[in-house]
């Protein structure tokens, strides 16, 4: 993780992180004007790359496939429009249908990348603290699921592989193959229950059942107030734009109109800033540290010297 983003993650509380993540998901859902969606996509890609570089390129591949599939499906399903580009048998591609398809594809991809960021930022404890403040029983299900799902996946993979060393004949077709798959599922469920009980024992040991008070006492620092103010402000603006249908096009229509005006420009700027917020906050604080604090700190330690 980039150090500027790491600064943001370490210095804001779980409510602020959660609000930021909810807001970028909301932003990805709300607008379909291509000027805005492309700006959002670029911002999302920057943050994604800086947040979790190791899985970035494989996710690029995945999101490209999703984009292509969405575009192709939409080209087949929605063949409206008057400006013909291509005719292949039953398939008529028009300027409008291509535009609609690309817009839908972009929206999908934006949503995927916003969840990528969510996955990179969200720590179990962040979500758990927020959930347990609102719905304690959901929080416990969440935490069990979170521990449980990777266990089931691992159990499935291991059992499937190890079964080869016990079973001599593997059916490759017909009813017997289905029967073998059902048997395998039953075996995995049996094993999963045992693992589930282990997690449950751990929760008992950690005193979850006698929880005395609300989880995670969350403290707000100045950085949290500032960030939350920005997020809430942008949320209100986004809500207002959504109500007035600003930033949205007549998607699916045979007469596709894509407009650009100062409001669209404003939305582009606001949402880019909002998505890039961790980078900007980290950057501002880093500059503050580099050019002011470290120079005014009287210290001869190597760390302070290297910062100067």
């Amino acid at each position: 993780m980039n150090r500027l983003i790491l600064f943001f993650q370490k210095n804001v509380n779980s409510i602020t992180v959660f609000a930021y993540l909810l807001n970028i998901i909301l932003v990805s859902l709300l607008y379909n004007n291509p000027f805005i969606t492309i700006t959002i996509l670029i911002s999302l890609l920057i943050i994604s790359f800086l947040t979790r570089r190791e899985k970035f390129f494989s996710y690029i591949g995945f999101s490209s496939v999703v984009f292509l599939v969405t575009v192709l499906f939409n080209l087949i399903l929605n063949q409206r429009g008057t400006h013909n580009l291509l005719m292949i048998g039953f398939l008529k591609i028009t300027m409008e249908s291509l535009g609609n398809s690309l817009i839908l594809g972009l929206s999908f991809v934006n949503l995927l990348w916003s969840f990528y960021i969510y996955d990179s930022f969200a720590r179990t404890k962040v979500i758990f603290e927020v959930l347990s403040r609102l719905f304690k029983s959901i929080a416990i299900i969440f935490i069990l699921t979170l521990k449980f799902i990777p266990e089931i996946i691992q159990t499935f993979t291991e059992t499937r592989e190890l079964r080869k060393f016990r079973v001599n004949i593997f059916e490759t077709k017909g009813f017997k193959k289905i029967q073998q798959t059902i048997d395998l599922t039953e075996i995995i469920l049996d094993k999963a229950v045992a693992k589930f009980m282990n997690v449950s024992d751990t929760l008992i040991l950690k005193g979850y059942e006698k929880q005395h008070q609300r989880m995670g006492k969350i403290f707000f620092k100045r950085i949290d107030y500032w960030t939350l103010t920005l997020i809430v402000g942008s949320f209100i603006l986004d809500f207002w734009f959504a109500v007035t249908k600003t930033g949205q096009i007549n998607f699916g229509s045979a007469n596709l109109m894509i407009g650009f005006n100062h409001k669209i420009f404003m939305i582009m700027i606001i949402n880019s800033v909002l998505i890039l917020l961790p980078l900007l906050i980290g950057g501002i604080n880093y500059q503050w540290w580099k050019f002011y604090i470290s120079k005014t700190t009287v210290s001869n330690t190597i760390t302070a010297k290297s910062y100067r």
């Binding site: 404890k125 282990n198 950690k206 005193g207």
Partner: peptide, 24 residues
Amino acid sequence: DNQIIMETPRDDLKFVLDNQGCTN
């Protein structure tokens, strides 16, 4: 592996103490 719930040791220790109702 089964005894750790959270993603970092600090979070896990806090989880235990939160459940005990300890102050920050």
